[in-house]
Amino acid sequence: MKAVLAFACLLGAASAQSVLLPDSMKEEVAQVAKENPSLKLEFYSNSRDAREKIATAEGYIGSPDEGLLEAGAKLRWVHVHGAGVERYASFAKIKDGSVTLTNFKIQQGPEIADHAFALLLSLTRNMAAFHRAQEKGAWGQNDARLPMIELRGRTLMVIGYGGIGTQVAERAKAFGMKVIAIDPKDLPISQTLDKTGKPDELNELLPEADVVVSCVPLTPQTEKMLSTAQFAAMKKGSYVINVSRGKVVDTDALVKALQEKKLGGAGLDVTDPEPLPQDHPLWKMQNVVITPHLAWASDQRDDRQDDLILTNLSRFAHGVTLKNRVDPAKGY
């Protein structure tokens, strides 16, 4: 990358670039500012402060609303925290391409993939039941209605083979599983993948899967991608794991499939609605594990994300294409 940036400098690509960042990043960006004198970094303490300063900014790091973008007359780049961009992709300046949007896709793969397997293993090894027994100080016996399942030799389908899906597939292979990937891209068969399919082949391939993991972004094409027809196509006793967006799964159809014992269980880090109402039936199901949309959390997350922001600040200063660009038309 240094060679690319040096070449850009020789071409004169670097001119004064104003970027508005949160106060919390002052220490992290000090070195990149020193190495890139053309960067003019300003900082904001809250959303009101950001709105007062956005008029002169060409770049913005944070979570803007559409009003902030409209007030930023000079904005050319916005970096948002997180991987999902459904709330930003429809903003006028993002949609028409006048502002480049980048995010943390790919960076969040390791921790979210870990979490997907934490949810899966909680179900296949009946960990929730044992934890309930532990809380009572009881030497709990396994509930025969929730059998102990071995993953080796089973088939996992990952829907969405991006930064998260690839990490899920790697972990599945480490457990001795076969892997099917569903993705719009053309994917080669590899040591990680045994079979691939397009989204229009989902229903055809679902009967082969013992575990289905949703890793897709929320777009008009993926909303309720897993609904009545898909649950009907799945093996009896199979598992659904959702670490993407709650609206990818039709909640009512999921509840019905669980009640009718079509599915063996569900592990949900995201739900629709979110959070679930206290009286929602999913809370009471013994074969459902729910976590409060925190699969992104990790002790190493901040370092990876800081590295991306620092890299993109340098690239922005020198007019080089930014990493992790989002295609607003695709929604990821």
Rank of each mutant, 00 (worst) to 15 (best):
S244D: 09
W139Q: 10
A57Y: 12
V288M: 07
V179M: 12
T196Y: 10
L75P: 07
R325S: 14
S298F: 12
A16L: 08
E58P: 07
I309A: 06
V249H: 00
N142P: 15
G160D: 05
T155Q: 14
E201I: 00
S90R: 10
W139C: 03
L11F: 05
L276M: 05
G331I: 01
K105A: 13
A172S: 11
A128F: 02
E66V: 05
K185G: 00
P281Y: 04
M157F: 03
R132F: 07
N36C: 15
T291W: 01
F316I: 05
C9T: 10
K195E: 15
G84F: 06
K178T: 11
K178E: 13
W77A: 06
T166C: 05
K2N: 10
A6V: 05
N142E: 09
K173F: 05
T271R: 10
S38N: 13
L75N: 07
E260S: 14
K262C: 08
D306L: 13
I180L: 09
L20H: 06
D143K: 12
R245F: 03
D114E: 15
S298Y: 05
G265C: 10
L206E: 12
P217I: 03
A297W: 07
L263I: 08
K2G: 02
A266I: 10
S314Q: 14
R87Q: 15
R152L: 03
A169P: 12
D210Q: 08
P199T: 06
M127S: 05
L5S: 02
L39H: 04
A133C: 06
E35W: 04
